[in-house]
Design a binder for these strands. Sequence first.
DNA 1: TGTTCATCTTGAACGTGTTCAGAAATCGGA
DNA 2: TCCGATTTCTGAACACGTTCAAGATGAACA
Lengths: 244, 244
Amino acid sequence: MRKRASDTEVLNVSDEIGKSGGGIAREVGKSEATQQRILAAALQLFRERGFEAATMRDIAAAAKVATGAAYYYFASKDAIVLAFYRQAADEMSAELENALTGTTDLRKCLAAILEIKLHYFEPSRRLLSALAAHVDPAHPLSPFSEQTREIRERDIAVFGRAVDHSGSRLADDLKAPLPRLLWMYQMGLILYWIHDESAAQAKTRALIDRSLRVVVRLLKLSALPLMRPLRRQVLDLYKIVSGS
Amino acid sequence: MRKRASDTEVLNVSDEIGKSGGGIAREVGKSEATQQRILAAALQLFRERGFEAATMRDIAAAAKVATGAAYYYFASKDAIVLAFYRQAADEMSAELENALTGTTDLRKCLAAILEIKLHYFEPSRRLLSALAAHVDPAHPLSPFSEQTREIRERDIAVFGRAVDHSGSRLADDLKAPLPRLLWMYQMGLILYWIHDESAAQAKTRALIDRSLRVVVRLLKLSALPLMRPLRRQVLDLYKIVSGS
DNA sequence: TGTTCATCTTGAACGTGTTCAGAAATCGGA
DNA sequence: TCCGATTTCTGAACACGTTCAAGATGAACA
């Protein structure tokens, strides 16, 4: 009976598409179309009414299927948000790569990355609060959960390339953890942005601009031989948290 | 009909106790006893089964009342956790004051504060994840919500006194924001502790010890005239976030 | 004692996310 | 074209948090 939607493997958009010739593949894309219809209906309702006010019954009705069908494609209501998150990561990746090659100035590069993400998520800002309201690593929608691991790691890799491309001279022991640290930093900014109710999220904009300068300044400072003991202390904290 | 449990004023333990002589007061403490019975039953079930697995029906049954009665005393399931949080803050306050006068060493003082809280919350560690799983300031149970404001502000005041009692020389512009900054720092540690699955939460223990040294070291560093520009930059970030 | 009235209590009912037994649709192969 | 198998879909049913109209309780007063 139930075969599709599992907890970890929620959305397999590109699955089975390639094997139309091989095994079990009917009218190409029929199933995928339904799934996309449900996803689209859900996202529209989420944006219109908010995550909680949009019920699974409404979503299914809007997608012209029965309630149960939604659960055939998505393991849970949360999983729909997760699918959106994955789609977002995919759609942004090309743009992000462009941003990386645009400049060797780390500050500008980080600013560009953040600009891309905020611009992309702008229409879904409130929806994201459903995704990022949780800090519990056990919650599927947490940015720190197992379910979001793949997206997270790919995202961290982007920061890794940003660091590589930049001309900044860095302390050697900082090079390995820095991508993940920068990712955490941007996660904090995005979290703040989601809940920022100032006009046009001006506060977040200010925070990004100012904090980027601080971050880059700290990076330069930390490269000084004088700062080595403190840097080691801070990196020890990172080691504890990152669990190595 | 419904008069009790409102959203902001969830638990009025000490309400109406004083006016037994004045107006409407029956068998003294009857109502309070019921409320406490519900709270106690809830906490026991929360600890036994976890917040989500303990249903309001179970809680009411364990307290020997109908389901609706629980909602007469508590506006929601969350509100019960909130009541627990308030009770905890009350019960810890005396101990915290003691810790403050115990030493003039800021590091030891902060360590003592954290020790008291972790020790108190130890049996309810998992329950706290229901309280602290949210970073959304709009969520009642968020440490940053309006509903938890009073507890938060009182708690920040504790850190204020800790700073005052300490002999550390601090930059003048740091004195005002420092208590809140320290509170945020401890909140981060507690958050980490809640989700720390290492044996006996050893990682949190290590993190507290090491990070406290870093914090104190940074405070000393920040007092140096050389560090003034960077300190100003960081304080600007604080101003943006704290919304002034 | 009987009446009044706020306080307290009840349990059925609502809307929610989710499950599931089975029906319908569609496939590959005879 | 028909058959068995697989995928896709249905809608009633479940357990949950929560609401609410109605009832029960008991103190204060006549």
